Simulated scan of single mutants.
Amino acid sequence: MSPRAGLTTERLVRAGAELSDEVGFEQVTVSALARQFDVKVASLYSHVKSSQDLRTRIALLSLEEMADRLATALAGRAGKDALAAFANVYRDYAREHPGRYTAARLTLDPETAAASAGPRHAQMTRAILRGYDLTEPDQTHAVRLLGSVFHGYISLETAGGFSHSAPDTRETWVWIVDRLDALLRTWPPSAPSDPAPAPEPTPRPTE
């Protein structure tokens, strides 16, 4: 059977996702995929439009995979158990699939983002936070806090930033989740916004 036989967009995207885990997301191109399948680059353009299109499709696949994992992990959980399960899905996915995790951070155009699994991630994050009785605007602040802490730590850890010091990175990860849970349970309500200052009176011309 020739290398081109059985090529589909889905097969190419999954091969690209696996390649990203091996060599890094930014190294995934249509040319690299063509070499892997031992076919000419032109033969792949009936399945993907460009390297950017390929990377976008890998990002969408990664978001979908993580959303499915999150849904399974969060089923029947609430409070700290849900928070820990949520956090662990992201960390475990990043450790198992570093290229795909990077892909999931790709900036998508608004229309593509709206049709992706990204909104599912946001919905599940807010479902967890509703268990902590957070209302707006605190809930949005907390969504951004969790994203910043989890992604920041995972990025540093996968880059080897904590590999030469104690304690173990897993111990620190559990510590972080514990402290976030304590913060969310005792989150003080936001004070009302200060009223806008009254406009300065318009100066009158000197008579």
Rank of each mutant, 00 (worst) to 15 (best):
Q27P: 03
D178S: 00
V39P: 06
T72Q: 07
D178M: 03
M1K: 03
G118N: 07
P203D: 00
S51Y: 07
P199I: 04
R179F: 11
P199N: 03
A142T: 05
T186M: 12
A115P: 06
P201G: 00
R14P: 02
E18K: 15
G76I: 13
P203H: 00
A34T: 12
R170Q: 14
S31E: 01
R35Y: 07
V13L: 13
A159M: 06
E207K: 03
E200T: 11
R144M: 08
A113H: 12
A82M: 05
R120C: 08
L183C: 10
T102L: 09
A94Y: 07
V23H: 10
A32Q: 09
F162Y: 15
A113I: 04
R130W: 05
K49C: 04
L12P: 03
R57V: 05
T206R: 05
P189F: 10
L19M: 15
S155H: 03
P197M: 07
A142Q: 06
F86R: 08
G147H: 07
T9G: 11
A34E: 00
D38A: 15
Y93G: 00
T112S: 11
I154P: 05
L156E: 10
E171T: 14
A75D: 15
L61W: 02
N88L: 07
E136H: 09
A75K: 14
L145M: 15
A87Y: 07
P110M: 05
T158L: 14
G152W: 04
T202K: 00
V177H: 03
P192M: 11
L12H: 14
P3K: 00
P98K: 12
R91P: 05
W173H: 02
E10W: 08
V143W: 01
P195C: 04
D181A: 04
L146E: 01
T158D: 01
L83P: 10
E111F: 11
D109R: 05
T202Q: 04
V30R: 02
P205G: 01
E157S: 15
P188L: 00
E10L: 12
S148N: 10
G24A: 11
S46N: 11
A85H: 03
P188A: 02
P98M: 11
R11F: 05
A117W: 03
R4L: 11
A82K: 01
A191F: 09
V41T: 04
A127D: 08
S148P: 01
